[in-house]
């Protein structure tokens, strides 16, 4: 089992809208906290440490080149 990076979401636009809506009305610290809880929930759902390490590495890879704002 390795990290799926090809499209795998049932309905990408529905998911994205729901994700943004989940943050409605939250101040920045609350948004951060929501994201942290979300990462933990999804990590538990994935379960595999190997997959999670791959995801962490992929997310980290872009950390230096991400837009600054």
């Amino acid at each position: 089992m390795s990290l799926i990076t090809d499209p795998n979401l049932d309905s990408p636009d529905d998911f994205y809208e729901a994700l943004i809506a989940a943050h409605d009305g939250l101040a920045e610290p609350e948004s951060h906290a929501l994201n942290a809880r979300l990462v933990l929930l999804l990590a538990n759902h994935i379960g595999s440490l190997e997959v999670l390490r791959e995801a962490l590495a992929a997310a980290r890879l872009d950390a230096q080149s991400a837009p600054a704002s």
Binding site: T5, P7, D13, F15, Y16, L61, D62, P67
Partner: peptide, 29 residues
């Protein structure tokens, strides 16, 4: 919102290397 901007930029950044993120880039369907 700040959160919307954060995820937008994350999607665009990931889209360069992660095929799944390209399906989330929305410049108009």
């Amino acid at each position: 919102s700040a959160a919307s901007r954060l995820f937008r930029d994350a999607v665009l950044t990931l889209a360069r290397t992660q095929p799944f993120a390209r399906t989330l880039v929305n410049s108009g369907r």
